[in-house]
Amino acid sequence: MSQPSIQVIAIGNAIVDVMAPCADALIDQLGLVRGGMTLVDTDRAKELYDAMGPAREISGGSAANTLAGLAALGSRCAFIGQVADDQLGEVFAHDIRAGGISFATASRAGDPPTARCLIFVTPDGQRTMNTFLGASQFLPSAALDEAAIARAEVLYLEGYLWDPEEPRAAMRRAISAARDAGRKVAFTLSDAFVIDRHGDDFRALIEAGEIDILFANHVELAALTGHEDFHLGIDALKAKVPMLVVTRGEHGAVAATGGALYEVPAVPVERVVDTTGAGDLFAAGFLHAHVNGHAPEACLKLGAICAAEIISHYGARPEANLRDLAGPLA
């Protein structure tokens, strides 16, 4: 097996985040699922956008956010995701390439437009996301760069993108390409609603040994395993996945691997401004340490450092110098 020239290649939604602060009352007024992620159609996206206050546009998408963190830490990264041939598509492509991430997926002509996520941030920093998937849900298998996948140490897949049929088929093909090349596959469950719809698929992938690193939060762990008790959920999966990583918000994170359980506390922050992207950046820190040969506890620690940076400001892309924060773990 040849040495990998890319450390992490990811497949995910290519989304531009549109973020605005809001009062708690607006969440109820609009009938939103507080703290969750809901898929919306064109009409609902327009209704929500019209209800927003002054907003910021920041390139996002879960896996793309993770790559932004990885690249900021110094990892060699590439992204596969579908944008439309429109202004937001150009914004997304510019932002990801400016971050040092290879992005060669061709833009898609015509409708639907590039995906966007309308994010309402309440005073406690909680984010309520409403995603119009647009062009991102039409990523075809033909768009995969299988040679790049074969050159990457880790293929990282975003659970959100499992929902639409076309990219789901593309990700299955990508898993086969990574497996054929002897590479690792990492998967993030993304949200409990995705598990509600595709949990059988995910459990089948796990049972078949197709996933080497599984990322989840405590809510997703319960949805996947059926165990509300956190430790029972860990016990149900730890023998089936070589590396199981579960975040618990302010209670820190754990990793189960090789028959051992590792745990680190959350890194304290002066004020939680916006939790958007906390899990994405945790995965970035963890994977960066992992591909650079650090032990599980150090991987968890860097994940916690990156998550703390992201929740201290608006947006899911790092603003502070992550390499400085990481210190020797970078």
Results as ranks from 00 to 15, higher is better:
Ala150Phe: 07
Gly226Glu: 12
Ala150Gly: 13
Leu70Asn: 08
Ser176His: 03
Ser141Trp: 00
Pro318Ala: 10
Phe132Asn: 00
Gly36Val: 04
Val83Asp: 02
Phe230Gly: 10
Pro54Trp: 11
Phe282Glu: 08
Ala284His: 04
Met19Lys: 08
Ser59Gly: 11
Cys22His: 09
Tyr49Gln: 10
Thr66Ala: 12
Thr105Glu: 07
Trp162Gly: 00
Val33Pro: 01
Ala192Tyr: 04
Ala68Leu: 11
Leu287His: 02
His231Asn: 12
Pro140Thr: 13
Phe187Trp: 14
Ala298Thr: 10
Asp201Ala: 13
Ala236Gly: 07
Ala71His: 12
Asp191Pro: 06
Arg323Tyr: 03
Ser2Cys: 00
Met52Asn: 09
Ile211Tyr: 02
Val121Ala: 04
Met37Asp: 02
Leu232Lys: 14
Thr38Asp: 14
Ile175Ser: 00
Asp24Tyr: 14
Gly293Pro: 11
Ala316Tyr: 00
Gly69His: 11
Val246Gly: 07
Arg168Asn: 04
Gln126Pro: 01
Ala208Gln: 15
Arg173Ser: 13
Glu228His: 14
Pro167Cys: 08
Met1Gly: 14
Leu329Ser: 05
Asn321Val: 02
Val40Ser: 09
His227Asn: 14
Pro328Asp: 14
Leu224Gln: 05
Leu26Cys: 03
Arg44His: 04
Met243Leu: 15
Val8Phe: 02
Lys240Phe: 06
Gly74His: 10
Gly303Glu: 03
Phe103Val: 04
Tyr160Ser: 05
Thr131Ser: 09
Glu153Ser: 13
Glu47Val: 11
Ala204Pro: 02
Asp95Thr: 13
Ile96Gly: 03
Gln137Glu: 15
Leu224Val: 12
Lys184Leu: 15
Asp17Leu: 03
Arg317Phe: 09
Leu325Glu: 01
Leu139Cys: 09
Leu325Pro: 00
Phe120Ser: 03
Val267Ser: 04
Ser141Tyr: 00
Leu300Met: 10
His294Trp: 11
Ala174Phe: 03
His218Asp: 15
Val219Met: 08
Ala223Thr: 04
Ile80Pro: 01
Val154Pro: 08
Pro296Gly: 09
